Computed example of a mutant assay.
Amino acid sequence: MITSPSHGQHLRGPDVYAISGLAWSGRGRIRRVEVSADGGRSWADATLQDPVLPRCMTRFRAAWKWDGRPTVLKSRATDETGDVQPERNALVAQRGTNGYFHYNAIVSWAVDEEGNVRHVYA
């Protein structure tokens, strides 16, 4: 999950920003984190911060050049078993909306043209 920028934060204008966050898996080590700055149409690898331990949170970072246009930020993790973090709609289709236990869907943050960041279901 991206922790910065995230809900309630404000970007001061077009610039290069650090996207950072935490990834974890109950199955083992995180092997890859990808970030998207276009709502999931394209993905780029983030850098994982050591140590990367089994079933522990792993920090990640990626540089992002924001052009000032509205966008949606996402991240997705892949663990050492090959399990890829699902989009929300895929998780809801599989499990329904009545439970939040072990919820592991991708979290999305919308950035508007003024730099305001808020949570969205995308």
Score class of each variant (00 low, 15 high):
11 L>G: 08
12 R>D: 14
13 G>M: 09
14 P>I: 01
14 P>Y: 00
15 D>Q: 13
15 D>V: 05
15 D>K: 11
16 V>Y: 01
16 V>L: 05
17 Y>I: 11
17 Y>A: 08
20 S>G: 10
21 G>S: 10
21 G>Q: 07
21 G>L: 06
22 L>H: 08
22 L>R: 12
22 L>S: 12
22 L>I: 09
23 A>W: 02
24 W>R: 14
25 S>L: 04
25 S>H: 07
26 G>F: 05
27 R>T: 01
27 R>L: 02
27 R>S: 03
28 G>T: 00
29 R>D: 07
29 R>N: 10
30 I>E: 09
31 R>L: 09
31 R>V: 13
33 V>I: 13
34 E>I: 01
34 E>F: 03
34 E>G: 02
35 V>Y: 10
36 S>A: 01
37 A>S: 14
37 A>V: 11
37 A>P: 04
37 A>E: 00
38 D>W: 09
38 D>V: 02
38 D>Y: 09
39 G>F: 07
39 G>T: 03
39 G>I: 03
39 G>Q: 10
40 G>T: 04
41 R>G: 03
41 R>V: 06
42 S>C: 04
42 S>Q: 06
43 W>Q: 03
44 A>I: 08
45 D>Q: 12
45 D>T: 08
47 T>P: 00
47 T>Q: 12
49 Q>R: 12
50 D>H: 10
51 P>E: 11
51 P>D: 10
52 V>W: 04
53 L>F: 05
53 L>D: 14
53 L>R: 15
54 P>M: 01
54 P>E: 07
54 P>F: 06
54 P>N: 10
55 R>A: 14
55 R>F: 04
57 M>K: 04
58 T>W: 07
58 T>Y: 07
58 T>S: 13
58 T>L: 09
58 T>M: 05
60 F>H: 08
60 F>P: 09
61 R>F: 13
61 R>L: 09
61 R>V: 15
62 A>M: 08
64 W>S: 00
64 W>Y: 09
65 K>V: 15
65 K>T: 15
65 K>P: 00
65 K>Q: 14
65 K>S: 10
65 K>G: 04
67 D>E: 05
67 D>Q: 05
67 D>W: 01
67 D>I: 04
68 G>V: 01
69 R>D: 04
69 R>N: 12
70 P>D: 07
70 P>V: 03
70 P>M: 10
71 T>N: 06
72 V>P: 00
75 S>G: 11
75 S>Y: 02
77 A>G: 14
77 A>P: 05
77 A>Q: 11
77 A>F: 01
78 T>W: 02
79 D>Q: 04
80 E>K: 00
80 E>S: 06
82 G>R: 08
82 G>Y: 00
83 D>F: 12
84 V>E: 11
84 V>H: 02
84 V>W: 01
85 Q>A: 05
85 Q>D: 05
85 Q>H: 10
85 Q>N: 11
85 Q>P: 06
86 P>D: 08
87 E>K: 07
87 E>F: 15
87 E>A: 12
88 R>M: 14
88 R>D: 12
88 R>C: 06
88 R>I: 11
89 N>T: 11
89 N>V: 10
90 A>S: 13
91 L>T: 04
92 V>Q: 08
92 V>R: 13
95 R>N: 10
95 R>M: 12
95 R>Q: 11
97 T>S: 13
97 T>N: 08
